[in-house]
Simulated scan of single mutants.
Amino acid sequence: MTTANADMLNQIKSGQGFIAALDQSGGSTPKALKGYGIDEDAFSNDEEMFGLIHAMRSRIVTSPCFNGEKVIGAILFERTMDGDAGGKPVPALLWERGVVPFLKVDKGLEAEENGVQLMKANPDLDTLCERAVAKGVFGTKMRSVVNLANAAGIKAIVEQQFAEAKRIAAHGLVPIIEPEVNIKSAERDAADRLLLQETLAALEAWDGAPVMLKLSLPTEAGLFQPLVDHPKVLRVVALSGGFARPEACAELAKNPGIIASFSRALLEDLRHQMDDAEFDKSLGGAIDEIHAASVA
Rank of each mutant, 00 (worst) to 15 (best):
125 L>F: 02
50 F>E: 02
17 G>I: 00
281 K>S: 11
41 D>C: 03
286 A>T: 00
205 A>H: 12
206 W>P: 07
64 P>G: 08
296 A>L: 06
211 V>F: 04
162 F>A: 01
291 H>I: 04
21 A>V: 05
143 R>V: 10
204 E>Q: 15
22 L>T: 10
249 C>I: 11
239 L>D: 06
255 N>Q: 05
148 L>P: 00
226 P>N: 08
20 A>Y: 10
20 A>S: 13
35 G>Q: 13
39 D>F: 00
197 Q>W: 01
87 G>Q: 05
3 T>F: 05
205 A>L: 08
27 G>P: 05
158 V>H: 00
216 S>Y: 12
51 G>P: 07
157 I>S: 04
119 M>Q: 15
276 D>P: 10
225 Q>N: 11
287 I>N: 05
189 D>E: 13
254 K>W: 02
149 A>D: 00
288 D>C: 05
279 F>V: 11
45 N>R: 05
153 G>L: 08
165 A>E: 04
42 A>S: 15
91 P>V: 08
153 G>R: 00
234 L>C: 09
130 E>N: 09
14 S>Q: 14
194 L>F: 10
107 K>Y: 12
36 Y>P: 03
97 R>V: 07
247 E>K: 15
283 L>M: 02
183 I>S: 01
155 K>D: 10
205 A>C: 03
188 R>P: 02
278 E>L: 08
151 A>L: 04
276 D>L: 10
108 G>Y: 12
8 M>N: 04
206 W>N: 07
43 F>E: 05
21 A>S: 13
138 F>A: 08
